[in-house]
């Protein structure tokens, strides 16, 4: 049972990060109807930028939280600039091009960012220095570090802020109008270009935050981390209902928990001995003897859960948990 709660807690932490990244996908999708393939790389840039700063300051005697904040303070503008440039180069010139075109440029941008990051930071893994307290607290039998608590709280606060921004401000209203109907929004005096650029920049700021969180959580970062993280966050966005902010948050947290539970139990679930111990009458004991007390699939398969979730959602509820079903107009 302790393991179960521990996995839920880990999932919640992971899920908060996914949710922040998923928001970037879903905002851009909501406004422009396209998937920003390069978004995962922005997270990576954020993580590595912050790590460089944090590593520089780690020995300076400044208190740990200040060092991390400084890293974040540098990473956020760097990512915002990256997001701005991506929109300018890869998307804006192609807004009226065939659908495949912006997807392809986005892949190009993704490769470029990865390679540039590799030139800058090299191929090796960068470690997050021990500047933050790592002694775990025991909560309901699960171990939870300060870092993890901060991640969940900070993510929640950020998302609430975003919700207020979108639903309670003039800017948010312009964003919603643009996502409903860009042409009409522009007739009403909304500068659609600016709103789209702002959306990219805002999403990138969230990505920077997520990048710092993910590297703090796993104590590591490298130039290749954006790809899988991006894929998973996109899955989270689809799971929640792409284009829907609340959906991205829900989808992120759910996916984190699914993945965490899956990684924790896949070994048991593919182990005949585990089944024979738990099934009435010890069914499967023969298979247990034959194959030994080991799972066929181990936690090295944890990355496939997100993918299966994606397929299942797309097959059974393509509009996601909170999305509305949109019929293709004839």
């Amino acid at each position: 049972m302790d393991i179960f709660i521990q996995q839920i807690v880990n999932g919640l932490v992971l899920g908060s990060i996914y949710a922040l990244v998923a928001l970037g996908y879903t905002m851009v999708y909501g406004i422009m109807g396209l998937i920003n393939f390069a978004h995962g790389e922005v997270v990576m840039i954020g993580a590595l930028t912050a790590l460089s700063v944090i590593n520089k300051l780690a020995g300076s005697g400044l208190p740990g939280p200040v060092v991390v904040l400084a890293g974040l303070a540098v990473a956020v503008p760097v990512c915002m600039a990256t997001g701005f440039i991506i929109e300018r180069i890869a998307y804006r010139p192609l807004r009226h091009a065939p659908r495949l075109a912006p997807l392809i440029t986005a892949i190009g941008v993704s490769i470029l960012l990865q390679q540039v990051a590799m030139l800058f930071w090299g191929r090796n893994y960068h470690t997050f220095p021990a500047v933050l307290p790592s002694a775990p607290h025991q909560i309901f039998g699960a171990a939870l570090t300060d870092v993890q608590i901060i991640i969940v709280l900070l993510a929640a606060a950020t998302m609430s802020g975003l919700w207020l921004l979108v639903n309670r401000t003039r800017l948010g209203r312009a964003m919603r109008a643009t996502s409903e109907h860009p042409a009409i929004a522009s007739l009403m005096g909304v500068d659609v270009n600016r709103i789209i650029a702002f959306t990219f920049v805002l999403g990138s700021a969230l990505a920077a935050l997520a990048g710092v969180m993910v590297s703090a959580n796993y104590s590591t970062a490298h130039y290749h981390m954006g790809f899988l993280l991006g894929l998973k966050a996109f899955t989270a966005a689809v799971l929640g209902g792409i284009g829907n902010l609340g959906g991205a948050m829900l989808g992120g947290v759910l996916l984190g928990i699914i993945e965490s539970l899956g990684a924790g139990y896949i070994g048991d679930l593919t182990n005949f001995c585990w089944w024979s111990n738990h099934l009435p009458g010890g069914t499967g004991a023969g298979l247990c003897e034959q194959f030994g007390d080991r799972g066929f699939l181990g936690s090295n398969y944890k990355d496939i859960f997100a993918f299966f979730v994606l397929i299942l959602v797309l097959v059974f509820r393509p509009s996601g948990l909170m999305g509305e079903k949109v019929a293709e107009r004839a």
Binding site: I89, A101, G108, I111, L112, V116
Partner: peptide
């Protein structure tokens, strides 16, 4: 290898634009 990837990425963008 890095040069190759940079060229690929750049080529995808340039061709589309």
């Amino acid at each position: 290898e890095a040069l190759r990837m940079l060229l690929f990425g750049g080529a995808l963008i340039a061709v589309m634009l």
